[in-house]
Write a protein that binds this DNA or RNA. Structure first.
Lengths: 119, 119
DNA sequence: GAGCTGATTCGAGATTCGTCAAGACAGGGA
DNA sequence: TCCCTGTCTTGACGAATCTCGAATCAGCTC
């Protein structure tokens, strides 16, 4: 991530109507599934929530919150980054992570239920 | 699924504020991650969209839509079912699947972005 | 009851994933 | 310049996942 060329992300590729409105094509599903998959691990879901609930987070703070090794946290952050859910930026010694609201919004829209009364 | 006792699902366990509002606890993340994980496979994501976009779908129709064997489709449907995302019901010879709007709504709420202006 | 159709479960093989230890790289301070 | 701190990458291993064929179960029709 030292290189910022990952700004070309799979986000724009998929912009679909809610699941409850129309079925996805195979291609759309293949584009979107990695995002859900990235959130499908408890550690990554918690990392995502920690990153999204503040403006920026330092890796050092994230590492301290888990009983996992540094490389493991780094690996999970990389998965989130490659899924387009977060951005990273090196600033002096530390690396800071920031959420990508676009991506979260896209997933939320996909899961939106057309019938609010449905229970 | 022949037995309907799976109606006791992990849904009620987790009911959390949006990711962008407060970080998840380890327990909350462990409850929610399986749902995202279930949607993290292209085949399952497409199955979910096919089920959610109509009232009910017969397994036979789902199987026909993929180049996969029956047991494989059955496996993916089981994952969706155990994650609490769909319900199944046997009616005569056929088994019908239905989405659980509660679950989709919960996930959508979790991904909701507090700042609609954010881009 | 016998036979048929549809769906699930079981068992096995190949692939992917999660984790860590060791090494490499980037940047700041003496 | 050299060393130290902090982070990422690489390589490796066990565990979980995806897929299929074969066998099993559920229900209808004759």
């Amino acid at each position: 991530m030292s290189k910022q060329r990952e700004s070309v992300l799979p986000i724009a590729a998929a912009c679909c109507p809610p699941l409850a409105v129309a079925p996805l094509s195979g291609e759309q599903a293949a584009d979107l599934a990695p995002m859900f998959k990235a959130l499908g691990d408890p550690v990554r879901l918690r990392l995502m929530s920690m990153i999204a609930s503040t403006d920026e987070v330092c890796v050092c703070d994230l590492t301290d919150a888990f009983d996992l090794s540094g490389p493991t946290i780094s690996h999970h952050l990389r998965v989130l980054r490659e899924a387009g859910l977060v951005d990273s930026e090196r600033r002096a010694t530390w690396v800071w992570y920031r959420a990508r609201p676009q991506a979260l919004k896209q997933l939320a829209g996909l899961l939106d239920i057309a019938t609010p009364a449905a229970v």
